[in-house]
Amino acid sequence: MSQTDEKKAPAERKIFAPVVNEETAKFWKAAEEGKLLYGWCLACNEPHYFPRSFCPFCFSTRVEWREASGEARVYSYSIMHRSPAGPYTIAYVELKEGPRVLTNLVDCDFKKIAIDAPAKLVFKPSDGGAPVPFFTLA
């Protein structure tokens, strides 16, 4: 059996509305403006994702959240066939800025997905919440 016999991510799969809390509210507010934020530590100059109020590497609170370029490449992926709404692809993509981000690869030919393939940011509406960042093949 081919590993990639389905072409398109189905439109029907519901996207969970992200649970927003006090720390992450501004991430989801930026998402409404089509921006993906990641954390940048001013103490150790390391990027992190998902963004936090502190640096998970050096524990400094001198952290700012920066807008990602949206450019990335595929680190790994799996096409999920056990899904009532049709196959979908889970993936980690590596942002141009460094962090590897869990996501789905959407709106693309699943046959063309490969490790290291260039990918770019797209937002999709969630089921009653903020828009969610996804990636598609660039």
Binding site: P18, V19, T24, M80, S83, L102, T103
Partner: peptide, 10 residues
């Protein structure tokens, strides 16, 4: 949770 649950991870 917010950064993983929307992606259908199993």
């Amino acid at each position: 949770a917010a950064f993983e649950m929307p992606y259908g991870g199993t």
